[in-house]
């Protein structure tokens, strides 16, 4: 079987200004692996949007990135409030982000749509009051 590289990150939910540390770290790692810049861009933006969501809505969580021979898998897991209506959350422009987040330029309702746009496959498992797990896949 092909070798799998795993990278694990804790996403700190208390510090909005440092959100993105894991994605920027992943970007560096993928660059070192010599991957195509457009693939790196897609993976790191999708992951950043997920990270931001975990900070805004779920007090942080955990991120895992697995690099396989033919694809990259990103798993974001939180114990936040969950998503009541996933279909509605996926609509461009729909947002439940608070005002202070919007004043920073986030909360435009483009996070989940961007994650879908930049990945080849995305799965959301969510239970209200329990948490959300988003699994994304980018083919190499």
């Amino acid at each position: 079987m092909s070798e799998i590289l795993n990278f694990h990150f804790q996403v700190d939910g208390n510090d909005f200004t440092s959100a993105g540390q894991a994605s920027i770290q992943i970007k560096k790692i993928l660059r070192r692996l010599g991957l195509d810049p457009e693939i790196i861009r897609r993976v790191s933006i999708a992951m950043y949007e997920g990270e931001i969501n975990m900070v805004i809505h779920a007090h942080g969580g955990e991120a895992d990135v697995n690099v396989y021979e033919d694809h990259i898998e990103i798993i974001l897991k939180d114990n936040g409030p969950g998503i009541k209506d996933i279909e509605q959350a996926m609509q461009e422009g729909f947002s439940t982000a608070p005002d202070q987040i919007r004043s920073l330029g986030f909360g435009a309702g483009m996070g989940l749509p961007n994650m879908k746009r930049y990945t080849d496959d995305m799965k959301i498992e969510s239970e209200v009051g329990v948490g959300t797990t988003v699994t994304m896949c980018v083919n190499l």
């Binding site: 950043y48 949007e49 920073l104 330029g105 986030f106 435009a108 309702g109 483009m110 961007n114």
Partner: peptide, 8 residues
């Protein structure tokens, strides 16, 4: 100015 729009 909306960061997710920019990333998209």
């Amino acid at each position: 100015d909306l960061l997710s729009w920019v990333m998209g």
